[in-house]
Design a protein around this nucleic acid. Structure first.
Length: 430
RNA sequence: GCAGGGGUGGCGGAGCGGUUAACGCGCAAGCCUGCUAAGCUUGAGUCCUUCGGGGCGCGCGAGUUCGAAUCUCGUCCCCUGCGCCA
């Protein structure tokens, strides 16, 4: 949610920043918002004056009545006021709803370091790490190989749940858990608190986290109940401190959330053939931080680095791209995409997404903190980054670690979580 | 699902038609004091403001009234017990 005070105080700066988004409609919204807000404020003053008058009369009536005198004249005036207030109120309510509509939809102010551009083609690759593996055999599609090795069953999942679902089996299911566990341990060592959030959330809480007008169609809802299944652990973690005032010394709050994610993925053609890349349900370990505004950039780099380290330790070649002004969602002020190498397609595919949401998300949720040594309250900043989305990783692992004989090598750092297993399928297991 | 109880500031908790939402804890500023502690004074919801002040605020939404935290209706949530149950 946009900060209306910024618009009132420095409309020029806001306009300039919004302009970078390359979406003329935003500037139109801004103008309309300013107009409606000005009108709203003047109506509010009008209504407030009437209320003040009514309150004064009410007090007088009380006094006059206690004295046993006749309050008829005062009562008449008092009775006439509520109708006037009601008329103004109707107009001002409408205006307030409109300004709120704009505040919810105007995108966050961009950081200076966000590259200027129109679409994802203008995203800037800031670094590339790792050596792309050279293979002199044809790399099999990850889903196909998993099915051949009896490590995944897509057909039976389709039978009971439909396309986009799968059974993970045996060593591959274990690999999925190993990935999560490895990511969790890494974050726990860095002081992040492990969180298993609720997987269902009520509408009012979800509204604080996303714009349901846009987002609702991609979520699963529970029939007959006011509940939605979470699309990511980011959502219940962000909403966790909804409406609270935190003490500054408790910041930063660093969380490591682990949960399945449920997404309808409506209109996604073929769900990327059969496989794990784009599915209705997957497991994810998510980093989330609430911090003081001045620390936002520092922790943004920290969570990006955490994810990069994970990629390096798993020996997956990756690139970090700085997402450009035209391709950023409305919530983030800055975003890195971490993309991993797919040797089969010889391109980088999206694995993790790291966002600095500044106060945009927290303002809407009403999460503030009290500054130490003062009584002032300020909106906290929120940051989030994927640590691991297991299905996407299964794909790149199966591709990058595929051997010529059609097996999958287990990354060294994951072996302790796999009973020392070096290769899938296990020779012994067969 | 049924029955009962309850939702008030950062927290606990009073108020149950009429000036300023009592009191306590915690917090902040200042005073006092060898230091610390204690003590004393003041301050702190939110919105608008021409910075004088004014409005709103007691889960949410309607209503009654000149006036509602307080009365009426609806609704959501929480707690306790019963029921059900991995």
């Amino acid at each position: 949610m946009f900060d209306i005070k910024l618009i009132r105080e420095t409309p020029g700066t806001v306009r300039e920043n919004l302009g970078k988004r390359q979406e003329p409609e935003y500037l139109k919204w801004l103008d309309e918002l300013i107009e409606k807000d000005t009108e709203w404020r003047s109506l509010k003053q009008e209504a407030d004056k009437l209320r003040a008058r009514r309150n004064a009369i009410s007090k007088e009536i009380n006094i006059v009545k206690k004295e046993g005198k006749d309050a008829k004249k005062l009562l008449e005036e008092a009775k006439s006021i509520p109708q006037k207030i009601k008329e103004i109120e109707e107009k001002s309510k409408e205006l307030a709803e409109k300004t709120n509509w704009y505040l919810m939809r105007l995108p966050n102010l961009l950081k200076e370091s966000v590259p200027f551009g129109k679409s994802d083609e203008d995203n800037v690759v800031e670094k590339e790490v790792g050596k792309k593996p050279k293979r002199n055999f044809e790399i099999k599609h990850h889903g196909q190989l998993a099915a051949e090795l009896d490590l995944a069953d897509f057909e039976r999942a389709v039978k009971i749940s439909g396309a986009g679902f799968f059974y993970l089996k045996g060593d591959l299911a274990l690999l999925d858990i190993a990935l999560q566990r490895y990511a969790i341990d890494k974050l726990r060592k860095k002081g992040y608190t492990l969180i298993q959030p609720p997987h269902l959330m009520r509408t009012d809480a979800y509204e604080g986290v996303v714009d349901l007008a846009d987002f609702d169609t991609v979520m699963y809802k529970v029939d007959g109940e006011d509940m939605r299944m979470i699309a990511t652990a980011e959502h219940p973690m962000a909403a966790m401190y909804k409406g609270e005032i935190l003490e500054e010394e408790k910041l930063p709050i660093k969380l490591c959330g682990v949960s399945p994610c449920y997404r309808r993925e409506i209109g996604k053609h073929g769900l990327d053939e059969r496989g794990f890349f784009r599915v209705h349900q997957f497991n994810k370990v998510e980093q989330f931080i609430f911090c003081a505004p001045e620390d936002g950039e520092k922790y943004f780099e920290e969570i990006a680095r955490n994810a990069e380290e994970l990629l390096e330790e798993l020996e997956i070649p990756y690139q970090r791209t700085n997402v450009c002004t035209g391709d950023l969602g409305i919530i983030a002020a800055k975003k890195y995409d971490l993309v991993g190498y797919s040797p089969r397609e010889d391109k980088f595919i999206e694995l993790m997404s790291c966002s600095n949401c500044t106060g945009y998300q927290a303002r809407r949720l009403g999460i503030r903190f009290r500054k130490k040594g003062s009584t002032d309250k300020e909106v906290v900043h929120t940051l989030n980054n994927t640590m691991i989305a297991t299905t996407r990783f299964l794909r790149v692992l199966i591709e990058n670690y595929q051997t010529e004989k059609g097996t999958i090598e287990v990354p060294k750092v994951l072996r302790p979580y796999m009973d020392g297993l070096e290769e899938i399928p296990s020779k012994k297991a067969k």
